[in-house]
Design a protein around this nucleic acid. Structure first.
Lengths: 207, 207
DNA sequence: CAGGCTATTTACCAGTTGGTAGAGAGCGGC
DNA sequence: GCCGCTCTCTACCAACTGGTAAATAGCCTG
């Protein structure tokens, strides 16, 4: 009996999850406007109305996708910000953790890129997710600066610079592919190193 | 008589040029799929069929826009590559020149971003424009390396890294705006400095 | 077995999309 | 005065868009 309930719950989340991940991929590559619900459904072997049943509207689907991605990101950042690392080590851990998420889920980067366009539907929603996390990071950094454990700098601008570097990885991967080069880890690792260097030179008091 | 001819020619290029720049702005902000010919025409106070008369199809319009932008970019690069600067100075001049184009025409960056997505219509066309210029730059850099005037490095990867940094400026501007910060020159200048530092540390033999 | 809930379907719709066909206006050359 | 060229327009269309309404089937509970 309970098995049956589980089975149905699994079946539900299965369809829903499949729609979600297919939508993530499509929004991230073809863009929001470039994605049609009919195509999406066809790709999954279901009818468009099933998508609308689960997510009410195309906009609702986008929101759900954004929510999931933002959750993955803020969750990862949360782990680090609740962790034991301190001072500069924490900054480094944060960067490495975010890059790890990005590398594990390349499609996530595509969506991030698509949705960071101002005026894009979902831009506001992404911002609502990221802002508290950014504010938290900012408060922490500014605290470190005040305590003399980090050099003084514009924390806000620093964070945005870091964020856009991560999104920029998506751009670079695409440029590489467009240039006919199968993307490797190398440029990504290089970007990460650049970002770490930049942050270290801005923040590390030992420099 | 000749006046009349000129007037007509001017009128022609006027409409066509207006369509072109409006399309550039719309493709760069709303994206290709997010741009409708009807809206575009309405914004210009003309009928959609006038657009189609001048550019045959929506795709044709995109191609024309890409051609213009790529022309601006390769033209700028061409100037420098035909100029008097040598060695590292030439690299620096190249970077500064390209950034100048990007700053003078922010919409161009938006289009570049839109069109660098692989699978995007126009991606191939952009590539066809950029490739010869990239190849030329690469040959030159590799020559400098062989002559010992630059340090050895992967010229191809270096160029792509530089290119995606420029495109990344578009991303950053948008992220800034999405974060509610009116974009200023500062982050752009910073990106340019970062890129120059990166290139210098990779190429300048004096380092 | 009746009733209700969940999930998916078929049938349908109004609005928008890019694009075609063709008419008309203004002009210069013959 | 008429032809032909360039440019812009009106009229129209088939295909597709996101979305609504309602039917159906399977399952659990009472």
């Amino acid at each position: 009996m309970q098995d049956r309930v589980n089975e149905r719950l699994e079946a539900r989340s299965n369809t829903k999850a499949q729609i979600l991940s297919a939508a993530l991929a499509s929004f991230g590559t073809a863009g929001y406007d470039g994605t049609s619900l009919d195509d999406l459904a066809r790709g999954l072997g279901i009818r468009k109305q099933t998508i609308l049943y689960h997510f009410v509207s195309k906009r609702g689907l986008l929101n759900a996708v954004v929510d999931r991605c933002a959750g993955d990101l803020t969750g990862a950042m949360d782990e680090v910000l609740s962790g034991a690392d301190r001072d500069w080590e924490r900054v480094e851990a944060l960067v490495r953790r975010v890059f790890r998420v990005a590398l594990e889920q390349p499609v996530l980067l595509g969506l991030l890129r698509e949705v960071s366009r101002p005026g894009s539907p979902g831009a506001q929603r992404l911002r609502n997710h990221m802002e508290p996390m950014m504010a938290r990071a900012r408060v922490w950094i500014e605290g470190e600066m005040a305590a003399g454990r980090m050099r003084r700098a514009d924390a806000q601008l620093l964070l945005i610079s870091a964020y856009s570097t991560v999104v920029g990885v998506a751009t670079e991967t695409e440029v590489l592919r467009a240039a006919g080069i199968e993307p490797t880890l190398r440029p990504v690792v290089q970007r990460r190193r650049e970002l770490l260097n930049f942050l270290r030179s801005s923040l590390d008091p030992r420099d």
